[in-house]
Computed example of a mutant assay.
Amino acid sequence: MSSIWPRVLQCVVLAIPLMLLAAACGDSGSGTPVTGASIEPSFPPPTASSTPPATPAAGLTEYTVQPGDTLYSIAARFGVSVAAVAAANGIADISEITAGQVLTIPSSGVAAPTPAPVPFTPAPASGAPADVLSKAVNPDRRIVAFSFDAGSDVGYASQILDVLASNGIHASFGMTGRWAEQNPDLLKRIVRERHSLINHTYDHDSFTGRSTGAAALAQGQRWEELDRTEAIINELTGASTKPFFRPPYGDFDDSVNADVGARGYAYNVMWTVDSRGWTGIPASQIIQRCLDLAAPGAIYVFHVGSASQDGPALQSIIDGLRTQGYAIGSVPDMLAP
Results as ranks from 00 to 15, higher is better:
S2I: 10
L9H: 05
E40N: 14
T47A: 12
S49Q: 03
A54K: 02
A58V: 05
Y63R: 00
Y63G: 00
V65Y: 10
G68K: 10
T70G: 09
I74A: 11
I74Q: 14
A76H: 14
V80F: 10
V80H: 10
V82D: 07
A88C: 00
G90K: 07
E96C: 06
A99Y: 12
L103C: 14
P106H: 13
P113K: 10
A116I: 01
A125R: 05
V132Y: 00
S134F: 07
I143T: 12
A145T: 03
D149H: 01
V154A: 11
G155H: 01
Y156F: 08
A157S: 15
I160Y: 05
F173G: 07
G174S: 03
D185G: 12
H195Y: 05
L197Q: 11
N199D: 15
N199C: 13
T201Q: 08
Y202H: 15
S206H: 08
S206D: 13
A215C: 00
Q221P: 02
E225A: 09
E230D: 12
A231N: 11
L236P: 06
T237R: 11
Y249R: 08
D251I: 02
D251S: 09
D254R: 02
N257W: 00
V260W: 08
G261S: 03
G264L: 07
G264W: 10
V269C: 15
M270R: 11
G277Q: 06
G277T: 09
P282A: 08
A283Y: 02
I286L: 05
I287W: 03
Q288Y: 06
R289Q: 08
L291D: 08
Y300I: 01
F302P: 01
S306L: 02
A307P: 00
S308W: 02
S308K: 01
Q315Y: 07
G320M: 13
R322N: 07
G325K: 09
Y326A: 04
V331M: 01
L335V: 04
L335I: 01
